[in-house]
Design a protein around this nucleic acid. Structure first.
Length: 925
RNA sequence: GCGGGAAUUGCCAAGUUUGGUCAAAGGCGCUGGACUCAGAAUCCAGUCACGAAGGUGUUCGGGAGUUCAAAUCUCCCUUCCCGCACCA
């Protein structure tokens, strides 16, 4: 008996693969294929999401490799970031050593899965040879005027002690620590992602991404077409140039609202009766963050500040208010307010008793000012709008904009919600921004020859402020221009900068002259298949696209889009105690309780995503120790399709293990009984094999890995039976080899071991994917084997109903010849008509069918009731008889009884008359 | 509020694009049988209901419709999940 010792097998092959460097690739004539998983943060513990991510990626990479592609499948680490720094603050760790040891740990765990990475290409962000190029790219951005420094209100996380980009603020909370985000006025570095807004939008049309992700990016970029309108300020030369999507409501403007922090506001109220109230309101608003201020639930606050603007169309004076809901960073930091046609403005006007003016009337009824309880925001016809009266508002949008343009008071424009990318971070463990501040020369970029600006070692981690500021050796430097004493920028870059070009670096990881060499990158890029989590739908995937486009414009390569096809993997869930009454899951501490602490009602089990706070996680390393890496991979890939949620279950892993072990035995232990004479059973197993290869190949091509595994399982069951029934040696060997290869992307170690044991010299990892014989998979052969399955189902059913345990004889009675003739005429007539009368008339023209008229009429009526249930295809009576003769041994083996196949004509059985083409009558005894 | 996705027979989950052998694959669980002293493992069978020989009835969140034929197409509704959210 063969033993399946996964520990031994997995170690053995992992060592061999590594020793022979079989997954290392270089540029070749062969067609390339680039498979990539999202750049992971090197936490010291592999979690189950990683296991899923890598199992999907590796099986696809292995499949593509076997299909003959030159597959680039690299791994590296997004190794800058806060955990290292927090470890330094909390436990006095050295961030670099700490990170390096984490990387070592995660590599060991990854290798345990049997991933076919080209480890020679490994990169990591905190390598000076890597982040040097972050800095180089930053300087290039600066040269191209795509990086700038500006003072503005920015998102600030108190807990992380740093600023955040807009994309990193989720629902008003920090994406890392979920604490509330505040606004701070700071001078920071930005990258001009807005300059690429239009192209980022267009590019979404050429990538094969889930629609969901594309929509999220489109919404984030938030393109809107509208107009700039210039409102002159009374008694001043200035105009406030606001953006609106509704210039058609311009005549309805009854007030303006400025952000309280708009610098003009303070000027205006200075030394006026409004100053005191303004300061009170200002203080109050500044305590609110941007998200509170714009929250629907939060009360709108504002005041009149004694200033007026002028409606450029009517020349009417419009009072200027301030309001907490207007944010300085958006557009002009001020809005025109049309209370009749905007709900927010309506509520504000009601609150502060501002007049409301209707300028759009609905098509089908008349708005009355006195009766309005809310704004009318729909389409309609313009009124109170001078020359535009009577115009439909959609038309007026353009007409009014054109008029504004003519009088020089506005123009059409496109606005984007997307803000420029704030990359400064007040943290140590990141890539230093290569800038020097000189009292004489101002902002001076570090010269290219002085790169990299390395992180200093003489740093104190106090938990307060940016640790880099504590390094004198770093901060104090000389101005590259004038040589006088100067100071370095102490902010480091957002780690998303590191991950926005790493996939290009993988193409050419060891080079010195440029970040990477053009011709090599042009061979490998784009990433053909990218796999990762939905959480990066906006952040990473948007930044990476932006940086790819900029580096293309710098002439570094020619890729427009970095990631051609994107797969966002689903979550892993596990049943967990849940209280239906409180609608909440038990926390880690109470997960072993029977009842809910809050309400005392009984917990039920409900599936929820694995998380530390629930305490329902499983450790992939433990799983692999217990069941083996192949079984773990198999479970993950079979449990659900890659995109959907995967339900974790102990039984599921158990099945995976049993399947892997049994299949290992099936494919390594020689068959006990070997035949010389070929039978129909051999034909069947070969048919099933070819069918399986076809289905598995098609499924894997679509990354429908689950479907592929399912088909493999079904064939394995058949091969098992075949083996037990006795085999033809060559036929078994063909199945053995091909099934091993089919299974290889899923379970690489055990198949590699089988491959060796059946005498193959090369690695299964490098073997060619099996092909199938199209000639064996005709419609006719499908039909025939389906016929057999139907008979088996029917016999089983009859056995069951008759409560028969054993059978003595099965008679299969093939329909009489006239039925075949009738059937084929009927099937061809069905294309012309479904009318039974017409059909009968035509059929009855055949003189030899006339005697069967009554019978034909009955059968026809039955078939007409549901045409599609009957196959258009049918064999000839001779073929059908012959086929059932052929499969007699199979049925005989299965039922251990006599099998008789006869013509209806030659049968004495009453049942014989039931026989139809493709549906013989059955009599069992 | 806006946008997206989903609801399948005890559980997980295919099927929906392209309507038809779909009472609906596969796995898990459960039931019975074989093997075994017993268990584990393995194998066979069953697992919507009823059944008198392959049958009949009722199903794919709910309702209505199109069709000879609907899990699949159309319309309406309900519930759940996920984004975005007073964006000017």
């Amino acid at each position: 008996m063969v033993e399946y010792d996964f520990q031994k097998i997995e170690n053995k092959w992992q060592e061999k693969w590594e020793k022979d460097k079989i997954f290392e690739v270089k540029e070749e004539k062969k067609e390339k294929f680039y498979v990539l998983e999202m750049y992971p943060y090197p936490s010291s513990h592999l979690h189950i999401g990683h296991l899923r991510n890598y199992s999907i990626g590796d099986s696809y990479a292995r499949f593509k490799r076997m299909r003959g592609f030159n597959v680039l499948y690299p791994m590296g680490y997004d190794s800058f970031g806060m955990p290292a720094e927090n470890a330094a603050i909390d436990h006095g760790e050295n961030p670099e050593e700490w990170t390096d040891s984490n990387i070592d740990a995660i590599i060991k765990q990854q290798k345990r899965i049997g991933l076919s990475y080209d480890w020679a290409r490994m990169i990591y962000s905190h390598d000076t040879d890597y982040y040097k190029w972050d800095q180089w790219l930053f300087l290039k951005f600066l040269e191209k005027d795509l990086a700038y420094r500006e003072g503005s209100y920015v998102n600030w996380c108190n807990k992380c002690n740093t600023v955040l980009a807009n994309e990193q603020v989720q629902g008003g909370k920090c994406w890392r620590c979920s604490s509330d985000v505040e606004q701070k006025f700071l001078t920071q570095w930005f990258l001009k992602i807005r300059a690429y807004a239009e192209e980022l939008l267009d590019g979404l049309n050429v990538v094969d991404w889930p629609e969901k992700v594309k929509i999220m990016q489109r919404n984030w970029i938030g393109r809107s077409e509208g107009s700039i309108i210039r409102f002159p300020i009374v008694d001043e030369d200035r105009t406030i140039d606001i953006f609106t999507t509704r210039p058609d409501t311009l005549y309805g403007v009854t007030f303006m609202v400025f952000a309280p922090e708009h610098p003009w506001v303070r000027e205006w109220v200075k030394d006026t009766e409004y100053e005191k109230d303004f300061e009170i309101l200002y203080e109050e608003v500044m305590k609110q963050n941007k998200f509170e201020r714009t929250d629907i639930e939060v009360e709108k606050k504002g005041m009149f500040i004694g200033k007026y603007a002028i409606n450029p169309m009517t020349n009417e004076k419009v009072p200027v208010y301030i309001g907490n809901f207007v944010i300085f960073e958006y557009g002009a930091g001020a809005v025109m307010a049309v209370p009749a046609h905007d709900q927010r403005d309506f509520e504000f006007a009601k609150e502060y008793d501002i007049p409301i003016k209707i300028v759009i009337q609905p098509f089908d009824y008349e708005l009355k000012l006195s009766k309005m309880t809310r704004a009318y925001e729909e389409d309609g016809t313009l009124v109170n709008s001078e020359e535009f009266n009577g115009m439909e508002n959609r038309v007026a949008i353009n007409a009014i904009t054109e008029k504004l343009e003519k009088i020089g008071m506005g123009e059409a424009t496109i606005n984007y919600k997307l803000r420029d990318w704030l990359i400064s971070r007040q943290r140590y463990w990141g890539c230093p921004i290569p800038i020097i501040y000189c009292d004489e020369c101002g902002i001076v970029p570090v010269p290219y020859k002085d790169l990299p600006v390395k992180l200093p070692k003489d740093v104190k981690f106090t938990g307060k402020g940016n640790p880099l500021e504590t390094s004198k050796s770093f901060v104090n430097t000389k101005c590259p221009k004038c040589g006088k004493a100067a100071k370095r920028e102490t902010d480091t870059m957002d780690t998303f900068v590191d991950s926005s070009w790493y996939f290009i670096k993988f193409c050419d990881p060891r080079t010195d002259e440029l970040p990477y060499r053009k011709n090599i990158v042009n061979y490998w890029m784009n990433v053909d298949q990218y796999i990762g989590g939905i959480e990066h739908a906006i952040m990473h995937l948007l930044y990476a696209r932006f940086v790819t486009k900029v580096s293309r414009d710098l002439g570094l390569h020619k890729s427009d889009e970095p990631f051609q096809r994107l797969l966002t993997q689903g979550m892993i869930n596990k049943a967990h105690p849940y209280c239906p009454k409180c609608n909440s899951f038990a926390m880690k501490a109470e997960m072993h309780d029977e009842t809910c602490k809050q309400c005392g009602s009984k917990f039920v089990l409900k599936s929820v995503k694995m998380s530390k706070s629930y305490g329902n996680t499983v450790d992939p390393i433990e799983i692999m120790n217990e069941y083996g890496a192949d079984a773990a991979r198999f479970f993950i890939l079979f449990g659900a399709s890659p995109e959907s949620g995967l339900e974790w279950s102990e039984e599921g892993v158990g099945f995976a293990y049993k399947f892997i072990r049994n299949t290992f035995i099936l494919l390594t232990e020689p068959p006990e009984s070997i035949r010389k004479k070929k039978t129909i059973r051999d034909t069947l197993v070969i048919y099933n094999l070819n069918k399986t290869i076809k289905l598995v190949t098609e499924s894997l091509e679509k990354i429908a890995i689950r479907d592929a595994v399912n088909n493999i399982i079904q064939f394995t069951a058949d091969l098992n039976k075949y083996k037990n029934e006795g085999v033809i040696k060559t036929t078994f060997e063909e199945c053995q080899e091909k099934l091993t290869l089919l299974l290889h992307p899923i379970a690489p170690h055990m198949t590699e071991e089988i491959w060796e044991r059946i005498g193959k010299k090369e690695y299964a990892s490098l073997a060619a994917w099996p092909s199938y014989d199209e000639k064996l998979l005709t419609e006719e052969s499908d039909f025939k084997w389906k016929l057999m399955n139907n008979i088996v189902d029917d016999v089983n059913n009859i056995k069951l109903v008759m409560k028969k345990e054993t059978l003595e004889k099965i008679s299969i009675i093939i329909a009489d010849k006239w039925k075949f003739k009738f059937y084929s005429i009927l099937m061809s007539l069905l294309d012309e008509t479904r009318n039974q009368g017409d059909i009968m008339k035509k059929i009855m023209k055949e003189s030899d069918l006339k005697p069967h008229g009554k019978n034909i009429s009955q059968i026809t009526a039955k078939i007409l009731k549901n045409v599609g249930k009957y196959s258009k295809l049918s064999l000839s009576p001779e073929e059908e008889l012959q086929f059932f003769q052929e499969i007699k041994p199979i049925l005989n083996k299965k039922y251990q009884c006599d099998i008789e196949v006869v013509d209806e004509n030659n049968s004495q059985e009453k049942k014989a008359s039931q026989a139809l083409p493709g549906r013989p009558a059955i009599v069992i005894a």
